[in-house]
Amino acid sequence: MQPYKKHTSIAALMDRSNVDTDQIIPKQFLKKVERTGFGIHLFHDWRFLDDGITPNPEFELNKPAFQGAKILVAGDNFGCGSSREHAPWAIEDYGFNTVISTSFADIFFSNCFKNGIIPIKVTPAELDALMDEIRANEGVEFTVDLEAEKLTTPGGIEIKIEIDAFRKQSLLEGLDDIAWSLKHEDKITAFEEKHKQQLPWLWK
């Protein structure tokens, strides 16, 4: 995982509610044996025309102004449905590292942190204001400062990012759960030594 650095990036607008993980990454792409490379299938059924290759000009993320966006601003209850971890894999691989909504489905929410994405919860009024600012100025860039727990916009909106200390630290340092656990490798090794003495047959 990349350390999550303060960044100023294009915010793309997806004015839809209940975006489910089946839409984020449709099931025909789940049989891959890789975790990477799901970005090209992100929102596949919306993003491409029936031939599966031609970008759908009607789909919001295909707008030229939103190319290169790292921030996704979406409607209520983002990431509902199946628990597939392929959903955050696809979002991250496409290039987003921040998703803003009023609410997220539980499993999706925690899967985000495992994959270097901050899901930022805002109030409905804040979401409206952010969406309005994007509509008025497509391609506008927002600033996410995780260290200071702040999201700011050129229009003067300032929102506090609510995040627990452990998750914040992991994102800032780019530690995935594994890297975090490996920080305690000495404890794991010490445990193994003790375990080996108590239950030597486990190791034969």
Partner: peptide, 16 residues
Amino acid sequence: IGTSEVEHVMATQTLQ
């Protein structure tokens, strides 16, 4: 466990 956790166990022999 989930796929990320499978990897976690492979690498650390532990689970959170």
